[in-house]
Write a protein that binds this DNA or RNA. Structure first.
Lengths: 106, 106
DNA sequence: TAAATATATGAACAACAATTCATATATACA
DNA sequence: TGTATATATGAATTGTTGTTCATATATTTA
């Protein structure tokens, strides 16, 4: 028998995946990259320059995001342009941002 | 001159806070606690029992969430009941969950 | 094909975070 | 007041993660 509740029960497995998913947003470098890509695709070198980061730092973090299918690379010549690959990313980013901004106002 | 964009620019400082905020959701233990508290307040021992975790593990993680004002303790006798302290938490949890569930379906 | 440019990646290192264990604090009750 | 119960916390340990540095791969162009 289940207790009545308005909150859906979530499997242990899904909760684990959920925490893994939030981890992608839980790093300054990655969140800056995500924020940048919200405005559109950008090459690795452009990202590095814009964020004032070493190229290898950006590449390493892009690999993490790419492996998780959060960003998608497209090669053009010797440049590789990265774009957000999931329509939910902006929504999650903005939900968190709304919280932070709301908190700042007191 | 600014380039036209539909995406709000966010300060470095705010992006850092945002990533720090998402970190709270980026741990299995904490996300399980948060999920549990979505149904209502619960004592430390009840949380530990329900999640099959050591009491000190739960207390340590609750301290992290408490310090960030994500949960709020209320003492009743020798028990301390924890409840979610921020109305946005459920929203963020559900936004992430929707993404995970959507992904699972393919 | 050689040089230059753009990106990726492996290994080492450093920083950080979660758990464990022991113990401290606080409350209730006999 | 002494004991039991509930929770918190510090220290040590372990596991994880991000960065750095060196180098590899891929593409373009001279």
């Amino acid at each position: 028998m289940c207790k009545a509740s308005n909150v859906k029960s979530v499997s242990l497995d899904t909760l684990f995946e959920l925490s893994e998913f939030f981890k992608f947003f839980g790093d300054t470098t990655r969140i800056r990259v995500i924020h940048l890509l919200l405005s559109g695709e950008m090459s690795v070198s452009a990202i590095a320059e814009k964020l004032n980061l070493e190229q290898s730092v950006v590449s390493h973090q892009l690999r993490i995001l790419r492996t998780a299918n959060l960003v998608k690379p497209t090669r053009d010549g010797r440049k590789i342009y990265y774009a957000l690959d999931d329509e939910h990313i902006g929504e999650i980013f903005n939900t968190g941002l709304a919280h932070i901004l709301h908190k700042k106002k007191g």
